[in-house]
C-alpha cells in the first residue's frame, strides 16, 4: 500500500526536504492573477485555487528555447563550430499541479518522445528532472470538462504523486516509482482516509457540470468530420489570435529560427500556433491552410481526431477550460466538440 498521509502543517517541512535537491514551483497569486512561481523552502503552498491562467507547459516547453549556438570560425577546420546548450542544471518539483495539466504532459510525452527517431532531448531532459506533485481538484470550475476527456479532477496520469485534500491533511498517492520514493517516509493512510479520499473524488466528479460526448467523432471518418457543415459557423467570429493555443496545456507547435549577430548565432524554437496565417505559409507563397476556416478547423480536428487516431485514443485536450475562459470571442471548445459529434 503506497498511500500516505501528509498533514498540512507539516507540508512546509516535507517540501523543504525536497528542496534540498530540487527547485520548487507552485501556483501563487501575483497581482490578482494565478501564476506559477518559485516556492521558497519553508513556505506553504496555496491549497485552494482555480486553474492558473496559463498552463505550466512552459516548464518543459519554454515559449522561447535556445537549442544550440554556433560560431562562424574561419580559422577552425570545420568552419562553423556548434555548441550544445547546457541541460537543466537542477532537478525540480512542481507542487500542486492540477491533474488536468499533469495528464496533458502525459499526452505530450507521446508526441515529443515517440520513438528512437522522434525523441526530443529538450523535452525529455526537463521531464526526467521534474517531480510532479499533483493536487486533486475538489472544487472544479464551471468551465471544466475533464471527465469527458480521458481525465478527471482526481486523475493520476502524468503525475508522480497525487495529493488529495482531506481538510487539515492530504492523502498522498505514489503514482510513479519516483513519486513513491518521494513520499516513502510519510506515515501510511488509514482506511478512513482512503474512504474520505474516495468520497472526495466522487463529489468532485459529480461537480463537473458540463460533459461532452466523443462517440460520433470516434466513429466517423476523418473526411466526414472535415467536411461537416458547422465549420462555417464555428470559425465566424474567430480572430485567429494565439490565445487558445498559448494557454492550452496540450498545444505544442513551434517554429525554429536561426538568429545571428556577426559571427555568432543561436537556434531558437518558439511557440507557434495553427491559427496564424504564417504557420503553414510555404516558401513558394502557397498556403495549404489559406483561409480562417481551414485554420480553425485544424486546431479542433488535431485535438479531437488526428491525435486520437494516431496516439491510440488519447485526446489532444484535457478539459481544463482555459481557452473557454480566455478566448476573446468566447469560442467554446465544448460547443465545437458537440457540433463535431452531432
Amino acid at each position: 500500500m503506497s498511500d500516505k498521509i501528509l498533514k498540512k502543517d507539516q507540508a512546509a517541512s516535507f517540501l523543504a526536504e525536497l528542496a534540498q535537491k530540487r527547485d520548487l514551483h507552485a501556483p501563487a497569486l501575483a497581482g490578482g492573477r494565478l501564476v506559477w512561481a518559485p516556492l521558497e523552502p519553508g513556505q506553504e503552498p496555496l491549497w485552494q485555487f482555480n486553474n492558473t491562467a496559463l498552463s505550466p507547459k512552459e516548464f518543459f516547453f519554454p515559449q522561447t528555447e535556445c537549442m544550440m549556438r554556433f560560431t562562424n570560425a574561419q580559422d577552425h577546420e570545420e568552419g562553423m563550430v556548434m555548441h550544445s546548450e547546457p541541460e537543466l542544471a537542477r532537478e525540480r518539483a512542481l507542487v500542486n499541479m492540477r491533474p488536468c495539466d499533469a495528464k496533458a504532459f502525459g499526452v505530450l510525452d507521446l508526441i515529443f518522445c515517440q520513438d528512437e527517431m522522434t525523441d526530443d532531448p529538450y523535452w525529455r531532459d526537463k521531464r526526467e528532472k521534474s517531480l510532479i506533485i499533483a493536487l486533486a481538484c475538489n472544487d472544479p470550475c464551471p468551465t471544466c470538462f475533464c471527465t469527458s476527456m480521458n481525465c478527471g479532477p482526481h486523475s493520476e496520469a502524468g503525475a508522480d504523486v497525487l495529493l488529495i485534500d482531506l481538510g487539515d491533511k492530504l492523502l498522498a498517492k505514489g503514482v510513479s516509482d519516483q513519486g513513491e520514493a518521494a513520499i516513502a517516509a510519510l506515515p501510511a493512510a488509514t482506511d478512513d482516509d482512503l474512504a474520505a479520499a474516495a468520497e472526495a473524488k466522487q463529489m468532485a466528479e459529480a461537480a463537473i457540470i458540463t460533459t461532452v460526448e466523443m462517440d460520433q467523432i470516434n466513429e466517423r471518418g476523418l473526411m466526414e468530420l472535415y467536411e461537416a457543415g458547422h465549420w462555417d459557423r464555428t470559425q465566424e467570429s474567430c480572430l485567429n489570435c494565439g490565445t487558445c493555443t498559448f494557454c492550452c496545456p496540450t498545444c505544442h507547435c513551434f517554429d525554429i529560427q536561426d538568429e545571428t549577430q556577426g559571427p555568432a548565432g543561436r537556434r531558437v524554437r518558439n511557440w507557434d500556433y495553427c491559427m496564424s496565417y504564417l504557420f503553414t505559409l510555404h516558401g513558394s507563397g502557397h498556403n495549404p491552410r489559406g483561409s480562417k476556416k481551414d485554420r480553425v478547423r485544424q486546431r479542433f480536428m488535431h485535438k479531437f481526431k488526428y491525435i486520437p487516431v494516431k496516439r491510440g485514443g488519447e485526446i489532444g485536450c484535457v478539459g481544463c477550460g482555459r481557452c473557454v475562459q480566455l478566448c476573446p470571442v468566447n469560442i467554446d471548445v465544448r460547443e465545437v466538440v458537440r457540433d463535431m459529434n452531432a
Binding site: 515559449q63 489570435c241 494565439g242 498559448f246 504564417l278
Partner: peptide, 24 residues
C-alpha cells in the same frame, strides 16, 4: 506578454494582410 497577438487581431485598425511582425 505571450505574443498571442490577440490585441492586434481584436483591433479594427489592424487589417494588414501581412503584419510587419509576420514578415520574414
Amino acid at each position: 506578454c505571450i505574443r498571442c497577438y490577440a490585441c492586434r487581431d481584436a483591433c479594427p485598425l489592424c487589417y494588414c494582410h501581412v503584419c510587419f511582425v509576420d514578415e520574414a
